[in-house]
Simulated scan of single mutants.
Amino acid sequence: MVKTAVVTGASSGIGAAVTARLAKQGYRVLAVARRADRLAELAGRTGAEPHVLDVTDAGAVDRFAAAVARCDVLVNNAGGAFDAAALQDADPQVWRHSFEVNVLGTLHVTRALLPALLAAPGATVVTMNSTAGFTPYEGGGSYTAAKHAAHALTGTLRLELAGRPVRVVEIAPGMVRTEEFALNRFAGDADRAAAVYADVDRPLTAEDVAECVAFTVGLPIHVNVDQLVVRPLAQAAQHKLHRGPLFQEEAPR
Rank of each mutant, 00 (worst) to 15 (best):
A146S: 13
Y137P: 00
G122N: 09
G133Q: 00
Q93T: 14
L107S: 01
V109D: 03
P92L: 12
A78Y: 05
V73Q: 00
H108T: 05
H151S: 14
G105T: 11
R96T: 13
H108A: 10
A112H: 08
D83A: 13
T110C: 10
A120T: 08
T106V: 13
M128E: 01
A78W: 02
L104G: 06
G140V: 01
L104W: 14
H151M: 09
N129Y: 03
E100W: 03
L117K: 03
P92D: 14
D89R: 14
P115N: 12
N129Q: 04
A146Y: 04
T124H: 02
A150K: 04
L74Q: 02
F99M: 11
D83Q: 05
T110Y: 08
G122R: 08
L117M: 09
A90E: 14
A81G: 15
A152Y: 13
L113M: 09
N76L: 08
L104D: 12
D83Y: 08
K147P: 02
V75H: 03
E138F: 12
A132W: 06
T127S: 05
L113T: 12
D91V: 00
V126W: 00
A116V: 01
L87M: 04
R96G: 05
L74W: 12
A81Y: 06
F99K: 04
V125T: 04
G122D: 09
A145L: 07
D83C: 07
L74E: 04
A132N: 11
G141A: 05
F134L: 07
T124W: 07
G140R: 00
G133N: 01
E100V: 08
T127C: 10
L87D: 10
T106I: 04
N129S: 09
N77A: 07
R96N: 14
A123L: 06
V94Y: 04
L104E: 14
A120F: 03
T106P: 10
P136L: 10
L117R: 05
Y143S: 02
L113A: 09
L117E: 02
A123M: 02
A123S: 12
D83W: 09
T135Y: 07
E100D: 15
G80C: 10
A84W: 10
R96M: 13
S142W: 04
G133A: 02
A85L: 15
